[in-house]
Design a protein around this nucleic acid. Structure first.
Lengths: 129, 129
DNA sequence: CCTTGACCTTCTAGTGACTGGAAGCCACAT
DNA sequence: ATGTGGCTTCCAGTCACTAGAAGGTCAAGG
């Protein structure tokens, strides 16, 4: 499929997809006319990148995460350890998000009309590491 | 307190803190000698920014989130709606992270030694929106 | 067959969010 | 008083896009 459809299916703009190719993240096949050609596997990777990037993982980190799927020697304990360390990282992110959510929820539920700077929510704000 | 201690306490590098001042996100007081001077409230905001940025919120979004705390007219339904929409956004992020976590966990638990491209994990990869 | 318009290509340049380095002021210890 | 370290501003560079220009490709309609 062409880049347009790939963009639509992965949720990434075409420009970004070309950029990801430029930096060797996801390299499309080429047709005879020079057009990029995407398969379902490409779409999987691109969707994955969109998700991971949106969640605050850097490009090098994404490259690493992607390599977990590309590495054919998956039983390697290095790869496994890497995956597990990423799992821990994600758990951390989830708990930070949960804290942020709690803060915001409390704000919208309870804190209406009073004025700031000694609002209890602000105290809560810097609790997470 | 000086920027150095503020950096240590908030977990942000001094450069970033100065940058946040430059773009009017968090403006420190100044001492007579020209040094920036930070209070606990500043630290709260900076820590909050560190967390929110690390979780993939853009600067404009952070500005918005911060404004929720600065807005003295909190009962305003606009502000409340905004907070709730952010809560929904965070729920979304959390569920994406949970999916990513699941993918990685499964990978490290079950998928060792076989070779790619029809690994069931890859199929799972693009499930989330 | 020709044109129109949507979609593709590459290239250069600009933006957002930092980040590093230079040059110089300030504060405190030896 | 002189180093040492932290502070200041400013300018330049990087990363991850993103917009725009100039041009090639292709399916549909006249």
């Amino acid at each position: 499929m062409n880049i347009g459809e790939a963009a639509e299916r992965s949720g990434l703009p075409p420009k970004t997809i070309r950029y990801y190719e430029e930096i060797d993240l996801v390299i499309a096949d080429r047709r005879e006319n020079g057009y990029r050609d995407y398969s379902d596997v490409h779409i999987h990777k691109l969707s994955f990148l969109r998700r991971a990037r949106g969640l605050g993982f850097s490009i090098p980190e994404c490259r690493l995460l992607l390599s977990l799927y590309e590495d054919t020697d998956r039983s390697s304990s290095d790869v496994k350890a890497l995956a597990l360390s990423k799992v821990a990282e994600i758990d951390q992110k989830i708990s930070e998000l949960a804290g942020l959510r709690q803060t915001l929820k409390t704000l919208s539920d309870k804190c209406h009309g009073d004025d700031r700077p000694d609002c209890p929510i602000l105290d809560d704000l810097s609790k997470a590491p």
